[in-house]
Design a protein around this nucleic acid. Structure first.
Lengths: 348, 348
DNA sequence: GACGAGTCTGCAATCGGTTGTAGTCACATG
DNA sequence: CATGTGACTACAACCGATTGCAGACTCGTC
């Protein structure tokens, strides 16, 4: 069906090796030969077979993207970022949805790992040991999770939470509820501790109302507990949970923000579609996706053209530099508070 | 790194061909040999290299899924359906988002086509000629679009629109507005004509207010024209557009459903998160995805073990049966009206 | 005990590329 | 004119699997 390198070679009157070189390392072949080959290739619409190339080079030109739940609008944004960047580098992206299931997650990772050059794990639920093992046998970039020295792109939750708390404090809130996400979620932990720090430094009370599924229903389930805390403002693990809070609060006849202020995290598109529109911390999701790809690609390049063995000739020297280098594999993106209608001056 | 077939062969004390057969066509090898091979393979954690296999078999074990916009929650649902079914068949899925851009669409298709066994095109925007060409050079299944004999999974918009109109008629609405989607959208056309038919047969007036982008902003833009028509009810191209209508109507101080009823199409999750909750036609999105994969896989099987040439021995005979067979490549799924708070008895 | 039939297994070619190595050729130099 | 040099290009092995074909082996039968 498709043209092979042999077809091109025949048409150009050269050998297949010359074709291969003319197309991948043009400097190695004579200019006139190169031109012949290139025009032959063009006229046949030749494109090298990725599988065949991968067989010999050991690289597939594909990457994998594993995430918990495509139905959560947070993730499609990341996917878009990943795709746009990957496309520019001419690599294709396998996308896999784990349905928030950590078992499915490691199975998918295992299955994908063999077909890709590297993997991007977005908000992985896997535990530390599994993560460690995965990273040991595959090139991996984490998004929205930090673990050891595994390269990662994360959001600066400390800062995001600080912004949210500052906003609420300015509105007079003194007692803020926090609706946590899944226990296995790194970002939930980060957001929680970021909040705790922010609340402490800004002199307000923070009360956690537990862990809830990161869906609308999770927010519904949390709402009554939030009300019971007597807090005048609540920060939700993510926007979906915030929506659930809004829904249940409305059912109970409580008015937002008059009776209670609600803050989300993520800034998914729907945040401006609900009423009241949702005050939330916007995370640069697409950018995270793009950065993750860049990080991954640079790691892959590095692997093929390895930098001099760290400490190879002078073992133990410059440990600080080594650590600093490792640090550069962690990119932190800051969020931005979007103030909308769901927050107002504290009740009472 | 990973174990190859040679490693297994060595460990089992047989040749690579025996290993290959023992694992793929077990009947061909002696039971004891087979057991030896299988345990060797298991102990090495052997899994055949897909690229190498693909090289000789011509099949990659991958499929591609192309869709207009992952940010529209309609599509992630389809993706989920596709993935769950594909995973069961051990095929991996490339996902590509075209950003509603028909040019990007054909480029992506072209790029993907070489790396996959088949393609699922979801709500493709490509025109007829391009579609024809694509289908000619790749195994393709369409979702949410019908064209010629290309295998497809579609939704029965006739019926969905009939349900929506019946609901509105029962509420006393006599003049219904229709907010169309993109002009290049097949489903918009279908929904429009389905509506026209339903309105005619049920004796109510239908007024189209043009074509709008399938986003929240499209609904915002359409709302004022809808109001100007004097219609007491409006059906939107999809839920996102309906949300936009709700938003703009609210801004204008109109109350839904007291002043005007709003109906969406899709039933994305957010339909129950907005206020008022949205009456909408639920489309079985995941099922569509699953069916599309099944259709695609069966077509691929067929291609490898082709059925007797249609009309080969008795040309021209049984044209009806042939046509009926072609028809079986079109699956139609019916939607279901979800009545919620955005529809009520007609104003006045 | 030899031969035929029937099973099973191994050899080797093949898929479409890449790449180390050896060979060709033109040219310049002694 | 013979030889050395450098710049290209062709040959062939190889990546990891699959598969047609032929050889080996077992067993039953005459």
């Amino acid at each position: 069906m498709a043209a092979t390198i042999r077809d091109v070679a025949r048409l150009a009157g050269v050998s297949t090796s010359t074709v291969s070189r003319a197309l991948s390392v043009p400097d190695l072949v004579n200019a006139t030969t190169r031109a012949k080959v290139q025009s032959a290739a063009a006229s046949l619409g030749y494109a090298p077979n990725k599988a065949a190339r991968g067989l010999i080079t050991g690289r597939t030109g594909n990457i994998g993207l594993v995430l918990p739940d495509l139905a959560n609008p947070f993730f499609p944004s990341v996917v878009k970022g990943v795709q746009s960047r990957a496309r520019a580098a001419d690599v294709a992206v396998f996308v896999a949805d784990t349905d928030e299931n950590d078992l499915a997650e490691i199975n998918l990772v295992r299955a994908l790992a063999k077909q890709v050059d590297g993997l991007i794990l977005c908000s992985p639920r896997a535990n530390a040991d599994e993560l460690k093992r995965i990273a040991a046998e595959t090139t991996v970039v984490l998004v929205n999770r930090l673990f050891d020295d595994i390269p990662a792109v994360v959001f600066d939750h400390q800062d995001g939470m600080r912004q949210a708390v500052a906003h609420l404090v300015a509105l007079g809130h003194q007692r803020i509820a926090w609706v946590g996400g899944p226990v296995s979620s790194w970002s939930s932990e980060q957001r929680g501790s970021g909040l705790a720090a922010a609340a402490a430094s800004q002199g307000v009370e923070l009360v956690q109302v537990g862990h809830f599924p990161p869906y609308y229903d999770g927010g519904m389930a949390a709402a009554d507990q939030v009300v019971a805390t007597g807090a005048t403002a609540v920060i939700a693990y993510n926007d979906l949970v915030a929506f659930g809070l809004l829904g249940r609060l409305h059912l109970r006849g409580l008015s937002v923000p008059a009776d209670i202020s609600v803050v989300g995290i993520d800034d998914i598109e729907a945040a401006t579609m609900v009423r009241p529109t949702l005050t939330t911390v916007r995370l640069p999701k697409q950018q995270a996706g793009r950065l993750a790809v860049e990080l991954l690609l640079s790691l892959l390049d590095e692997a093929v053209a390895p930098t001099p063995e760290p400490g190879g000739d002078s073992p133990g020297s410059q440990p600080d530099r080594a650590r600093a280098e490792a640090k550069t594999n962690h990119r932190s993106l800051t969020g931005e508070l979007m103030v909308r209608d769901s927050t107002g001056v504290a009740a009472r």
